[in-house]
Amino acid sequence: MSLKSMVTGLTAAVAISLSFGVNAADTSSWSKDTVSGETDQAMHLEPDLENGRDIFEVCSACHMPEGWGMTDGTFPQLAGQHRPVLIKQLADIRALNRDNPTMYPFALPESIGDEQALADVTAYIEKLPMNPENGKGEWAEGTPEFEQGKKLYADNCVRCHGDHGEGNKEKFYPRIEGQHYAYMLRQFEWIRDGKRRNANPDMVDQIKNFTDKDMKMVINYVSRVLVDKKDLAPSANWTNPDFD
């Protein structure tokens, strides 16, 4: 093994161990991080979809060839997510600005490539059709918990995430409609409790008084928002023809 790869390996090993222990909330530099060099660079590169597909093969081992993740929420659905959101999260994870020890080594330039790779793979992912049967919370429409979640959404979330959870591409606000319930619940909790360090401070502030029940109700509602059919795969049995 060369000295360089040993150094890279050691640095990564330390980062993976450290990233587990870090949980201090430091969201003061949201706007600076939002336009961090790599994010900004990747945003302005012309994406190569063919190369994006090839890079996505690495991602597909966990996020699945369809980019649907897992309905139990272990891995999020990526398909249909806004490109700037995907770029920012990838850049944040590999800059250790968002702790994700599982994904961290995959996000490294050695694994997926430079800013051009970020531009390419995210362009590919954004165009994938979404899972029509995402993981949902337990409360069906009409239950008091569903209705309360709907109200919480209208009062707290709609301004940034939009009427139906479509997010905002220009502002790096993620699309949350169609996302798996358990994944969103975990991220929401980590954002509320300061564990997700790259969270938007406005959101941290907005949800700071949410109880665990509030959190479940609002995420249940979001997980049940109907996604526009044109963005969905024809069925949950659809397989990505780019991968055999």
């Binding site: 993976i16 161990s17 966990c62 599982t102 961290y104 080594p105």
Partner: peptide
């Protein structure tokens, strides 16, 4: 300890 953080999540 070690790299277990990378595996625990799955």
């Amino acid at each position: 300890n070690g790299n277990t953080a990378a595996m625990k999540g799955v």
